[in-house]
């Protein structure tokens, strides 16, 4: 489906490269700032408060929160990249060059989605790699983590594409991030186990989709979670399929992309 432009190069690959070059050209804002932000969380919650919290489900507090922090930085950046990039391209009408080209709708959608997934992976991977020098973080189920990468990353990357298309102002994108996604991630159990919460908050947590994502990632690293990780990822994967269907329909019909 993705036509070749050379021996190894595909049009999809070219679209992903453009996206990578875009965020690399402003790396202080797109790469370094989120990494620094995550380290501040690790320092404050892990190093400063962690010693007072002690162990949580048999792990040092810093080790317990690290999987959630990695997931948070990965997911938020995959979302933010795609939402802001696509919105900016629409706003400036720079996307017209791609829309008027023979790029297949799937190639165009894939280029944006994979671009954000890549940025999330760079940031999440850097945090994980450097943190592994500071703490002894186990990897209990590597295959589950690979599934988490594609399911959770795919979900947020596609959600970012969706918001990038339907948002009418930059303000709306920042609203989704700050007032919806970030709170959902925070109350989804990044910094605590929901089993510690009193009712009705414990039950309420189960209506938060991010709760399942954090628990799946935590199970992949630590081998422990509040819910069945496979059930969690099954639900998230189903969400990815639904989201993909919606976004593909948007690209196919040109809703808010074409005049």
């Amino acid at each position: 489906m993705s036509a070749r432009t050379g021996q190894w190069e595909t049009r999809l690959g070219l679209g992903v490269r453009r996206e990578f070059n875009r965020y690399w050209s402003i790396k202080r804002q797109t790469i370094l700032t989120p990494i620094l932000e995550t380290y501040l969380y690790i320092s404050v919650f892990g190093a400063a408060l962690g010693s007072r919290v002690g162990n949580l489900e048999g792990f040092d507090y810093i080790v317990f929160i690290l999987p959630g922090l990695v997931m948070m930085s990965f997911a938020l950046n995959a979302f933010e990249n795609n939402a802001s990039s696509l919105f900016q391209q629409r706003f400036m009408r720079a996307i017209d060059d791609q829309l008027a080209s023979p790029l297949h709708n799937l190639e165009l959608l894939g280029a944006y989605a994979l671009g954000g997934l890549g940025r999330g992976a760079i940031i999440g991977g850097t945090v994980l790699l450097t943190a592994s020098f500071l703490v002894d973080l186990p990897i209990a189920d590597p295959l589950l983590l690979v599934w988490c990468f594609f399911a959770i990353g795919g979900f947020f990357a596609l959600f970012g594409v969706l918001m990038g298309v339907i948002a009418d102002t930059f303000d709306q994108i920042s609203l989704y991030r700050s007032f919806i996604l970030q709170p959902l991630i925070f109350i989804g159990g990044v910094f605590y186990s929901t089993s510690l919460l009193p009712e009705p908050f414990q039950t309420a947590s189960q209506f938060n989709p991010v709760f399942y994502m954090i628990n799946a990632v935590r199970h992949g690293f630590l081998g422990t979670s509040d819910v069945d990780p496979y059930l969690s990822l099954g639900i998230v994967s189903a969400g990815v399929v639904v989201l993909f269907g919606i976004v593909y329909w948007i690209f196919k019909t040109g809703y808010k992309l074409r005049f």
């Binding site: 432009t5 049009r11 679209g15």
Partner: peptide, 11 residues
């Protein structure tokens, strides 16, 4: 990039 979107090889 424009050339690439239209399937032109790199060289």
């Amino acid at each position: 990039y424009h050339g690439g979107y239209y399937g032109m090889p790199r060289k």
